[in-house]
Amino acid sequence: MNKKAWIKDMKAVPFLLPFFIAYLIFTILPIFKGLQMSLYDWNLVKKMDFVGLENYVDMIKDPFFWQTLWNTTLFVILTTPTMVLLALGLALLANLNTKLKTFFRGSFFLPSILSVAVISFLAIFMLQPYSGLVNTVIQAIGIEAEPFWMADKTLAWVSIVGVTLWWSVGFNMILFLTSLQEIPDTYYEASEIDGATRWEQFRYITLPQLIPIGRVIILLQILASYKVFAQILLITGGGPGGATRPLIQYIYEVGFTQNNLGYAATMSYALFFILLILSIIQLKNQRLEEN
């Protein structure tokens, strides 16, 4: 490296430093602190006894850890494929050359700009029994039913998944949309001359071109879904009777209401490793295919 380039690089340092310090203190440091905590009996006020791997052994034996981990995994399984399909469908719709193009783009993306508290309370008002919009509409079209969207075990999942899709599909749609627009028109022109139908164009040009971004969306979606917490806490509170309680809510309860930060940190580490392994598998796959 010559001297000039080195000086040029150094110029970046003062610009990077403020963020880097904050990043170090608020992200990197807590990661190691968390590891230390997971080896201790540690409450909200102070560090108490060193317990080694005892918290980890407890975790493996804790049925709630597995139950809430399964609830979170179920959420991932339910939302990831539906999210990809829905985002793709909406992106295709928003990419159509119609007068409604701007309307589609705007309305699909709009929910994403709202905060989780806002969308959760909107959902609660719409889904609540006796006076909510959804049940009123159902009854207006002649169906005599009073479904409990948030209190019934199965329907609670339908509601949470539905609300999450509605809320966050916009961002994924934009990712698909940008990819769609990057596909050169020449591909379509050439295929048209060769006599390809619309379906063949979609099947052999559009879809293959969307695979890389699709993979990114799946990875982002899995990582984000494993961290699900706020909308479930706000809409069902993890209920009914813990049926929708995700792992992060359990970690939160153990840490802050049972006053056991050590064990909470242990479970956070378990989640961290699950996400790490998933990311590695995903990235490996991607590299293999790229080669």
Partner: peptide, 17 residues
Amino acid sequence: GINDIMIRNLDRIWTNE
């Protein structure tokens, strides 16, 4: 902690679970 446990489990009775 006990409060959380009681509420979560009693809720299962009230919701007929």
